[in-house]
Amino acid sequence: MTSAGPVLVLPSHGTGDPSGQRAIRALVDAVTERVDAPVLDCFVDVQQPDVPTTLTTAPGTAPLVIVPLLLSTGYHVRVDIAEAALSVAPRPTAVAPALGPDDRLVDLLALRLREAGSDDTDHVVLAAAGSSDPDAVADCATVAAALGDRLKAEVTVGFLASAEPRLDEAISAARDAHPESRVAVATYLLAPGYFARLAAVADADLVTAPLLRADEAPPAGLVDLVIDRYTQAVQTLAVPA
């Protein structure tokens, strides 16, 4: 357990999918059990409360640390969350980076592939949400390369929105390039929801579950990652003289 510290604010994307809501709630609860500080969840879209409301109504007077429950740098991290921290937060506030890239996410992707029945003869396509932010696209390419290193095979990327190539195009290209191999989609999404449903119906031979599942406890490595982001961000807060 960490020592008592700044309020931890955990903004996730938000979803109308009840299983996705349960999966994110379980992650927040698992983090709360290990952090000796108030923990608040909020959302950048779909659900309430939003980030500005949470920052302005957080209890107490301790500084705030925002750890985005988002896999890549993108508009929500760079704009929505960053602007709220700068212009709305009523006290010192630090913003941690997105959760990815990180080796623990690669570990979890590899686990989900094994669970889905993938083997070393498959060609793997990483399915990511997509973003118009080139840094987010680069983050996904970094994760795909790291997963390829882990699997000792090429891993390509397909996006579900806002970036190219789209997932269906990436799957078709994989089939053309590897006609004797199955195509396995590694779902690089945090939780069940709209994009996970799109990935699930892709024309692949198998598709993994997202990183969080509503029917199991949050993976320990993912909980550790969130806590590490919090601990590192606390160090960036100004220390009073």
Rank of each mutant, 00 (worst) to 15 (best):
M1C: 13
G5E: 11
V7P: 01
V9S: 03
V9Q: 04
P11T: 01
S12V: 14
S12F: 05
H13W: 05
D17S: 13
Q21T: 06
R22M: 14
V28D: 04
V28A: 06
V31D: 03
F43I: 15
P49S: 01
D50N: 10
D50E: 13
V51N: 02
P52S: 08
T53Y: 10
T54W: 11
L55V: 07
A58L: 08
I66Y: 10
L70V: 09
H76W: 05
H76F: 06
R78K: 13
V79S: 10
I81W: 06
E83G: 15
E83I: 15
A84Y: 02
R91S: 05
A94L: 02
V95R: 00
V95Q: 00
A96N: 10
L99G: 01
L109N: 12
S118M: 10
L126A: 11
A127G: 08
A128E: 04
G130K: 01
S132V: 11
A138P: 06
D139T: 02
A141V: 14
V143E: 00
V143C: 11
A144H: 01
A145Y: 03
A145T: 04
A146L: 01
L147M: 03
R150Y: 08
A163V: 06
P165L: 12
D168G: 08
D168A: 09
E169N: 02
A170G: 02
I171L: 12
A174D: 12
D176C: 15
V185P: 01
L190T: 02
A199W: 04
A202E: 14
D205R: 14
D205F: 15
L211D: 00
L212C: 03
R213K: 05
E216C: 09
A217K: 05
A217I: 07
P218I: 10
P218N: 04
L222R: 03
D228N: 05
R229Q: 10
Q235Y: 02
V239I: 15
V239K: 14
A241D: 04
A241C: 07
A241H: 09
